[in-house]
Structure formats: C-alpha cells, structure tokens
Design a protein around this nucleic acid. Sequence first.
DNA 1: ACGCTTGCGTTCATTCTGTTCACCCCCGGG
DNA 2: CCCGGGGGTGAACAGAATGAACGCAAGCGT
Lengths: 226, 226
Amino acid sequence: MSDVRVLVVEDEPLLAEAHKAYTERVPGFVVVGVVHTARDAMAALRQRGGADVDLVLLDFRLPDLHGLDVCRALRAAGSSVDVLAVTSARDLAVVRTAVSLGVTHYLLKPFTFAAFRDKLERYAEYRRQALADGEVAAQHEVDRMFATLRGAARHTLPKGLDEQTLHTVLAALGDGGLSATEVGRRTGISRVTARRYLEYLVSADRAVRAPRYGTPGRPEVEYRPV
Amino acid sequence: MSDVRVLVVEDEPLLAEAHKAYTERVPGFVVVGVVHTARDAMAALRQRGGADVDLVLLDFRLPDLHGLDVCRALRAAGSSVDVLAVTSARDLAVVRTAVSLGVTHYLLKPFTFAAFRDKLERYAEYRRQALADGEVAAQHEVDRMFATLRGAARHTLPKGLDEQTLHTVLAALGDGGLSATEVGRRTGISRVTARRYLEYLVSADRAVRAPRYGTPGRPEVEYRPV
DNA sequence: ACGCTTGCGTTCATTCTGTTCACCCCCGGG
DNA sequence: CCCGGGGGTGAACAGAATGAACGCAAGCGT
C-alpha cells in the first residue's frame, strides 16, 4: 500500500510548517504540498486532477475563502478527495456543516501530536479497508469502515494510570499555570496522584513544567498544557 | 426537541412505502415526503428551501440520476441536509465517494428493521448533540459526536446477560453515585455480576463511570445513569 | 553564610478493581 | 432416567490506582 499523499492548507506559515512536520512524523503519510490560501488549494487540487492528493489538511479560517466553501467547491466539482478539518472554529453549526460535506474528522486547534496522529491513523486504517477494488459483502463490513473512521479516540496509557483520572486532571489544568497541589485541590485528587498524571503529560509532550519563584520556601512547579 | 423530518427517496413504490413505515416506527422521526426520482427529490428540497427536511433516506439507484449525483448537487447548492444512503450498491468506490460527500451512514439493502433503527437512532443522538447553538469546549466532545454518528453498530443484549437481572440492577442504581459493590449489596447480586451489568450499561451509553477519590487505596468507581 | 520555610519527590500500605474459573441450574437428547 | 452442553453466577486471586507519611531539596531572609 502506497503512502497517503497529503496537502496542507494553512495560512499561518509557522503552523503550516508545524502541520507538515507532524504529518511526516506519522508513518505512511507524505506531504505533497503546502499552500496558504483557498485559491492555491483549489488550484493545486485541480492541476493535479485530484489524482495526486489523497487527503487535505484544511484550515477553515483562510484569508480568501472559508474552508467550508472550499469543501463545497470540491464536492461541486466532483472531487471526492478526503478532508481533515483542522481549525479553531468551535461553532456547532460549522461542525454540522463540515460533517454534511464529508470531512473525515474535525480537529480542534490547538491540538497535541497524539490527537493529530490518532486522526491520521484512523484515516489510514479506513483507507486500507476502503481502497480495495472489491465489494462489501455485508452491512457489518460497512459499519466497521464507518466506525474506523469516526470511532472514539483511543490511546494507551502506561500502567498505574487511569483514563478517567487523566481527563479530570486535564480538565482541571485548563490553560495551565497550576501546581500539582492546586490541581489536586481543584479535582479532589491528592497531590501525589495529580503530580503522577501531570508528569505523565510532560513525558508525553502534552505539558511543560516551569518553576514558580518569588515566594519563600522551595519553589512550586507550574504545569502548562502543550 | 422536535421530531426529525425525513424525506424518503426510493423509486420502487413498495419499498418506498416500507421505508416510510419503518421510519415512522422509530420514535422521534416523521416522514414529510416520499418521492421516486432524483428530480422530484431535488425539487422537494429546493422548494422547501431545505428548511423542512432534516434527513434524506436516499436510494442510490434512481431512474434519472445516481444518488451520488444528487448528493453532489445538494452540496454544490449549499445544502447541508443530512443523507442516509439506502442502497444495494456494494462497490467500495461508491462507499468511498458517499463518505466524501458526507452521508451520515450507508445502509445496505436488504436490511432488517433493527439495522435501520440503529442508523436512525444514531442520527437522532448525533443531532441532539449537534443541534445546540453553543460551542464545543474540547476535542473529546467533537470526538464523541463523530463516534455517535459512526461508531460500531449497537449490539443487542450480549450473551451472558439477562434481561431480568438488568432491570434489577437499573432499579437499584436509582439516581446513581453507587459503586458496583454497593449495587451488589442492594440487590443481593454479587459485585462481579453487578459490575458486568453496569459495564454493559456504560458501553450502551446508558450510564457513565466516575472514580471516587479522597480515600487511600484504589479508588472506587461510581456509576450514574444516562 | 546559615538556618527557615515550604513544597517536592518517593515509598509503601491500603483498598477496590478486573478476571478467571469452577459451580449450578435448566433444557434437550439419548 | 441419566448425561451433556450452554448460559448465568459468584469465590478467589492477582494486581492496579490511590493517598499518608517522610526525608530532602531549593529559594528566601537575616
């Protein structure tokens, strides 16, 4: 099975490079282009006849057109290229419309590499199932394809850590700037446990630590997401 | 929440009636029209401005146009009406294209009522989450919406579980906030069995789990309905 | 410098979880 | 009537996740 060819569409140059780098960290994916406007995106897809791009990482906030309009134009032109929405737009109306236009998934900015990889790996798996030229025999095969693409996010935690607790800690952490003690107080979890999860987040590159000086006593350690 | 208004598109008159009857057997759904051609379908959707139809049950093999072309036309016209593909087309290429055009799901003919109801109920649940005018706070909320729409087909009561016991457990659970041990004590059922049923409820999205912190030792798990 | 003050980092007992496997009950066939 | 199988249950067990306790580390103030 050949690599998935990805077109990155993102107006902010730094982010565009970041998305490209992220994509290429996922095995089986290769970036075939980076563009910064809706016009360039549609030109790139038309020029190649759509045959050279399998997946578009599409930012929705573009300088010339909204990403949703790009999708609509693609569908109207008969393209069935797959689209992964990558955007900070949190409106449910936008999500609904994106779903109706067939985006494979919808990734909220800012995102962690883990979340990004999850979406890409799902897509790769869906593609493996869908790309065969054959036919499906039964409903459950179709069901499995749909579920692969859209099913709940999965990630494996090290032993001793619990999924639920991790979510609680992440929620309490919010925008960051909290010590383990503070996270513990907010969640009802003990400091020791809170710290355990915060340190895991650091080790998974999903949070960073920074000392908080200025007060007497040993400095506290602040945690901050991503 | 108002009913989901459904337009049935199916060229075979008997099947069209059957789909209508099936739809109306599912609570929360109402059929607002039955048409037999692509032309009539598009006319019905244009005439109502799309505002009166929430979901289209779309057969793909129509006398005048292919269902995929109907989808494309709808998207090109800016409609974001939701589409449930109902077809005997088993080509993976068709499935792929349908996904890219944003069909909510893909139901192979012939189908059982259970399979049909599953797809409709998923859609209703997705709609309940998506229709609020608010915004999503976090990635996992979006994930949950996508998973609701597309997740693995809902299973009936799995083997090893008993309807009677399930009711007992549900009754004992009450408003929730009980651990498996506590449910066991209340019902006279062993913790292991109580847990088996509670976990089933969680997997069927009829209950949620939350850890109970604060005491030393491994935390208990509280179950809470809905 | 030197202690003071405060929180960090770690260890380990504690408690409940998740799973396995033997049992029991019911049914259907020989 | 006895035997065999499959579904549903619970006793026992291995271990997973938490928090109390404690000693030490790291700035601050004098």
